[in-house]
Design a protein around this nucleic acid. Structure first.
Lengths: 339, 339
DNA sequence: GTGAAAGCGCTAACAC
DNA sequence: GTGTTAGCGCTTTCAC
């Protein structure tokens, strides 16, 4: 049987089944309240299957005003945090019949252009924003364009729906874990404060230390990358009484800490325990192996999709906090102080 | 001034400029051979600007049969190799006025479903495939669907256009670099042979060793991840005469090697020099810092876009090999044998 | 139960 | 130089 040269249209299916286009359309979408005999229904499905019919997206979009696609606006996916969120979101979207379009937001001119292209294209129903700093104009832009959106791993008072993890809980567990090992002088390498989780993490870390009547923790603010971890370590060590254990706000920062510690002749964990936020397979292969707080990033992405769909339906869901508890994974970079 | 409640259409622009839809359309697309007075032209542009007009993608697609979007089918972007290719491709596509849609191909059922959704959606003009193993049916599928495609970082005799780097050159430079340090017994942790670059790398590595009259190198085949590196190291060390220096086919493998070496009490670089394929910022922070062969991955992605567009235009370009030379970046994980 | 027809926003062939 | 018109493939209202 020779290949069909052009993609089959609804008309072709209808013709093959001996019905009208509208009948075919209703049956294939099983539109509510459609009255078509079981037998015709079967004929239509069979014809569609045989011809390999797939509805043509643009045509359907034009007719319905909906596209079945959502955009993910995230910081560069070279950062595994965001890649994981993206994957979780894409998986969930797929389950619900939505395509995802990723627009990387590196904060530069080119990203911005790409982003506007996607937003203005008329090819998406809504946006999941994971890149917005607190002073980003993205929420306003989307509001002005009348595009539904949710924020993920960020929150904004302007956001119609923010989807977040219990960052404070992670920070508290981190403190408790390190204290459980016997540490009392703790340090934290926080992320930039224009990102809401950084602020929460810092506050929770500090207040948990107070609750436990520990000495005031040393805290430094740094970018999320390896270099930030490196500078953070230098910072913390120059404190009057340097911490014996520290918690980083990103995996990459922890890598930077391990590298810098090794170069400085600081032994981990004997001289310094290191606990990273977020867990990746690489943790098992770093030197020393890296203890982490595993966070439900994929679920976060999935929940963002659910929240966006709720917005589509006009539901006022408010904010979502992922219920999954963070999990400490103890490896070689943490121990009792002095060993 | 109150916001326009609904997105402006071409009709609105035409009305505002006092011309017909077709005039507006032609001017805004500056269609070839359009004769419209400079003055009307200006009026139309001005009206479009004022209203913030953006063509509606689906409508345009329906009318033209083209979408202005291309799909990127790549292995999970948690692998920085593919994330970098994706970024290069997206950047270039944007420059050329194309949107990109990323479909992760993790080789599982869910990815496959997502992929078919994208392919069948009618929302893309072509596909860049970077995930195909040699026995993948993806090329056939795309051919059957009549969707233009190119392979990137892979090659296939069936592919209409393969876009690759000079992997052999990287492998030769790796050998030369290690030999330059004084090593003679070399090892290589190759990637799975169902991926064409793995095969080329292995062959080039081996033949370069022969050219230099070195002892036959020890080669092991492993997955591209950290675990593959770990097992690869174990493998190589169990050789009759273990290599004093090795080249991995991925960055992650090298991380696995460093971790496993540390645990085995093997000193890098004194007991073993390690050179990784591909370079990432993290290399500066591993313990020890990791020597790498930097490869032009972003350019590879960009070139894939160019090649795909050539296919759109019916040009028979054949294969593309990125001209940028690989670059050795010597760090702490390589040294003369025995130090 | 089923089908005819209008129209989503745009482009392009053609008429004026 | 500029406007009219016929679709692109689909959904959906409404009449039969």
């Amino acid at each position: 049987m020779p290949e069909t040269p052009t993609r089959p249209r609804l008309t072709d299916v209808a013709a093959a089944a001996g019905v009208s286009k509208s009948a075919a359309s209703k049956v294939l979408n099983d539109a509510p309240g459609t009255s078509v005999s079981e037998e015709t229904r079967a004929r239509i499905h069979e014809a569609a299957r045989r011809l390999g019919y797939r509805p043509h997206g643009p045509a359907r979009s034009l007719a319905t005003g909906r596209t079945g696609a959502i955009a993910l606006v995230l910081p560069p996916l070279s950062n595994p945090t965001h890649a994981t969120i993206a994957r979780g979101a894409t998986r969930r979207a797929l389950e619900l019949g939505f395509m995802t379009l990723t627009a990387e937001d590196a904060g530069d001119e080119a990203s911005r252009a790409g982003l506007e292209m996607v937003i203005d294209s008329g090819r998406i129903d809504g946006v999941i924003v994971g890149s917005a700093s607190t002073d980003s104009d993205l929420p306003f832009l989307l509001t002005r364009k009348q595009l539904p959106y949710v924020l993920v791993n960020r929150s904004s008072p302007h956001g119609r729906a923010n989807v977040v993890m219990d960052v404070a809980q992670s920070a508290r567990e981190a403190v408790d874990f390190l204290v459980g090992l016997g540490h009392r002088r703790l340090g934290h390498i926080g992320g930039p404060t224009e990102y809401t989780p950084s602020v929460e993490r810092i506050q929770a870390f500090r207040s948990r230390c107070r609750e436990l009547r520990l000495p005031e923790p040393t805290i430094t603010l740094q970018p999320f990358d390896e270099g930030g971890g490196a500078r953070g370590l230098t910072d913390l060590r120059s404190a009057l009484e340097p911490p014996t254990a520290l918690f980083t706000s990103s995996f990459a920062q922890a890598v930077g800490v391990l590298g810098t510690a090794a170069q400085a002749g600081l032994r981990v964990p004997q001289d310094l325990s290191v606990l990273a936020n977020d867990d990746y397979p690489m943790a098992d292969y770093l030197v020393p192996t890296l203890s982490t707080v595993a966070t439900p990033l994929a679920e976060l992405g999935a929940a963002a999709v659910d929240a966006l769909l709720a917005v589509f339906n006009g539901e006022e869901t408010g904010d979502t906090v992922i219920p999954t508890a963070p999990q400490i994974i103890a490896r070689g970079s943490t121990s009792a102080p002095g060993d």
